[in-house]
């Protein structure tokens, strides 16, 4: 399960570097949170709230345009222990898929 996720993330990350904007991610999201146009700390605060509204094991998709979002969300994953299944960067739009782990 976990190894698959890491491989998945790696492949997606690699695909992002190669393909960039053409990439489509095929992850089923149980909930979508749109943080377009919002700046720090609101995306992180909203993501923390939203992850508690899905069941453990479910996926939350988050969309952000804050240029600080990629490092912030990676840190959020490290601090909260939830899992980032995938992320994409399309010009100024970032999309993240998180799995609730606890």
């Amino acid at each position: 399960m976990h190894i698959f996720d890491y491989v998945h993330t790696f492949i997606l990350g690699f695909a992002c570097m190669q393909g960039g904007s053409e990439l489509t991610v095929d992850v089923h999201a149980d909930k979508v949170l749109d943080c377009t146009g919002l700046l720090c700390p609101i995306p992180v605060v909203k993501t923390s709230k939203a992850i508690r509204e899905i069941e453990i094991g479910q996926i939350l998709e988050m969309i952000a345009t804050d240029p600080g979002a990629p490092p912030d969300m990676e840190a959020w994953v490290r601090q909260t222990g939830h899992q980032m299944v995938a992320q994409t960067a399309d010009n100024d739009q970032f999309r993240f898929w998180f799995r609730r782990t606890k």
């Binding site: 720090c40 700390p41 605060v45 923390s48 959020w76 601090q79 909260t80």
Partner: peptide, 10 residues
């Protein structure tokens, strides 16, 4: 900002 962010990550 720091306080709300830190509280958000538990």
């Amino acid at each position: 900002i720091l306080a709300s962010t830190a509280a958000a990550i538990g």
